[in-house]
Simulated assay, not measured.
Amino acid sequence: MTATDQSRQSTRRLLASIHDVHPGSVPAVEKLAGMFERHLGGPHYAMLVVPDHWGKYPIVGNTGFARRLREWSDSGIEIFLHGWFHRDTSEHSGIAALKAKHMTASEGEFLGLTKGDASFRMSEGRKLIEDIIGKPVAGFIAPAWLYGAGAMEALAENGFALAEDHMKVWRPETDEVVARGPVITWASRSRMRTASSLFAAAAGRLALGPLETVRVAVHPGDITKQSILESIDKTLASFTKGRRIGRYRDLLTS
């Protein structure tokens, strides 16, 4: 490797994350974590934790999950707060209605919340997770990467170090964008969405190489389709070549 190649590698990073981590998703999360660690050389990725996924899997009172979450955090995995319920129960109109219909399956929890409701869920979720892991969360990422006006106002006032959507990572307190470019992710809930996500991942492996920061995000449902697992494997293999395995906190100092 030439000096130029080494310098380029040192400035280019891969960020990887597992979404929708909650008591009901542990077996799937463990499988995805194993895949990540084979490619990334260890626990060099993030987990996005949902305090009470769809009102069915509360962390409160689940000592086994709390213990596992603390173990993940202690191993070096970055822990983000990922909404509260993950389920969207708001009524939408205009552009928000289009996003709610076409970008997610009733999972854009923070798309229609008022500032007060968003702030309450952010602060309560943060306290819950930080009490378990014994350290600050890495940041907040809204379910389905969707933020309404109320959520954005609340986010700016809740002191999270980082936030992320489909196209960027930023510091909520200053609005400084610290990474740009689309996140590579997959969809398993229908044949059409799966096919389109496989195509997008393949295109991303070709087109996103020049980006300084590439982000890859997986979900528990991804383990249900072998075609998606194979695509994740190819994508991680592609982007671990010539890049350092980064952490989200690197973005705060670069």
Rank of each mutant, 00 (worst) to 15 (best):
L113H: 04
W84D: 09
A97K: 15
G76E: 12
V137N: 06
K101I: 04
E71D: 07
G76M: 03
F65D: 05
A96K: 14
A144Y: 09
P58F: 04
L128F: 05
A97G: 07
I132A: 05
T104N: 13
T114C: 02
D52I: 09
G61Y: 10
K101S: 14
S73H: 09
E130C: 08
I129F: 02
S73Y: 00
P58C: 10
V137D: 04
T114L: 04
R87V: 09
F80G: 00
D131Q: 15
H92E: 03
L69R: 11
I77G: 01
D88S: 10
R67T: 14
G64R: 15
A142R: 03
F65C: 06
D131L: 06
H92D: 10
W145Y: 12
G64N: 12
G64L: 07
I95W: 14
A66W: 00
R67K: 14
L81H: 02
G61N: 05
E78P: 01
V137T: 09
N62G: 10
I133K: 00
G61M: 07
E78N: 01
H53F: 15
I132K: 12
I59K: 02
G116P: 04
D88E: 08
K135V: 04
A66C: 13
S90V: 05
R68E: 09
G94M: 02
L128A: 07
V60I: 11
F80K: 04
L128K: 08
G139H: 05
R126M: 12
R68T: 12
L81M: 03
D74E: 15
H86G: 09
P136D: 11
Y147V: 03
E91F: 11
A138Q: 10
G94P: 08
D52L: 07
S93H: 06
W72H: 12
E124K: 15
I129K: 02
V137R: 01
I79Q: 02
P58D: 04
D117W: 09
K115P: 01
G108L: 01
Y147D: 13
S119E: 13
M122F: 13
L69T: 06
W84T: 03
S75Q: 11
A144Q: 12
A100V: 11
W72S: 06
R70P: 06
S93R: 14
Y57R: 11
L111I: 02
L69Y: 05
I129Y: 01
W84Q: 09
N62D: 15
W54P: 00
K135E: 15
I77Y: 03
F85D: 05
G61L: 10
H82Y: 09
I133E: 02
K135M: 14
G108S: 06
L69P: 07
R68G: 04
A66S: 15
P143M: 09
V137C: 13
A144W: 07
